[in-house]
Every structure is written in C-alpha cells, then in structure tokens.
Amino acid sequence: MTDSRMALRAEALESLLTEKGLVDADRIDETISFYNERVGPMNGAQVVARAWRDADFKARLLADGTAAIDEFGFSGGQVDKLVVVENTPGTHNVVVCTLCSCYPWAVLGLPPRWYKDPAYRSRVVREPRAVLKEFGTAIPGDTTVQVWDSSAEIRYMVLPAMPLSWAGQSHDILASKVSRDSMIGVQVLLD
C-alpha cells in the first residue's frame, strides 16, 4: 500500500477505537512526543560513557545490564532483560533480530529502518564482515565477530571500545561521541 492509503487505514482504525473509548488521542500524542524526544541512543550513550569512566559500574553493567541501567531511570520499554556485550581487541559484537526487529528501546530508541529491513536481517547472520564493510567498518581477521540474534525477550546492546586518545575526557563529552551504530555493533568508534 502507498503511504496515503496506509494513512487512511490508520486514521480509520484510530477514529473507530477513539469512539469506542479504547484509545485516547491525547495519550497517543504524548506517546509520540515521548519517543521522539526522550527515548533514543543518547540514553545508551550515557551508559557507555559511565562504563568507560567507572570500572565498578562497567563490571556491574556486564554482569547484569538491567540492574545497572536501573539507576539511570530510563523508560521506553524493551529492556526487561538487557545483556550488554563488550567489544575487546579479540571480539567484535553485532546485534540483529532476524525474526522481527527486537531492539532495546529504552537505551537505543526505536530502531532505524535498515535494522528492520530484510537486507540486514537476512545477511548479518551469514556474512557479518561483508555487512559491516558496507557501514565502513572493517574488522581485523584475528578478531572474532560475534553476532547476537535477539530471538526471545532478551535485548542486547554493545559496549563499544573507547579510542585510547579519549581517555580522561568528561562524561558529557564522551557521551556525545558515542553513536547509535556503535551500540548496535555496525560501527567502531575512531579518533
């Protein structure tokens, strides 16, 4: 269907559900504003910056991601069990959901289109190195690429490696440099 036809169909459903008192237009507006403004990769970036500066927090984050992010008070859902996987010199992690498009909303926001499209979902489990190259990310041959297919209700986030030259920078500066794609695992952060 074209966008205009889908827009009509969505409007038909919303008007009928509103008349039956099953949805509320003001609450729909609030939800949309919330996900547009408050839920996004800037939340995950806070977690990453903290982990880079605080070894105790990093250890807690890797041991129990859900408990560790609790103190940030993020909402937005899809982190009932968050598993954070760390990129190291020997391992590069990348996350996908081949069956639908599961994604840790509360820390990364709603997923980008490419994450939901067939090309990424079909290919990254079979040829992750080739897919990463299309993102400009070359993983050395002696580094294992670890793909995580989020097929149940566990959600995955990558803790990217910090470029050495960033050491000693403030939390806010570090957080501003952490990209969404580095937390999905399709990008490596560079100086």
């Binding site: 966008d3 889908m6 827009a7 969505a10 409007e11 459903l13 919303e14 559900l17 099953l22 949805v23 509320d24 609450r27 729909i28 507006d29 939800t31 949309i32 996900y35 547009n36 996004g40 926001g109 709603l110 980008p112 289109r113």
Partner: peptide, 19 residues
C-alpha cells in the same frame, strides 16, 4: 533518520502501545 517518517507510522505505534 527521523524516529518516524510519516505521521501515520507514529499513530500506529502509539495505538499499539495503548491497546
């Protein structure tokens, strides 16, 4: 990329959550 590309996409997303 914007969070939602079209208004109807956002309405559908929010209706799902509300229901």
């Amino acid at each position: 990329e914007p969070v939602f590309h079209e208004r109807w996409e956002a309405r559908v997303f929010a209706m799902y959550l509300q229901l």
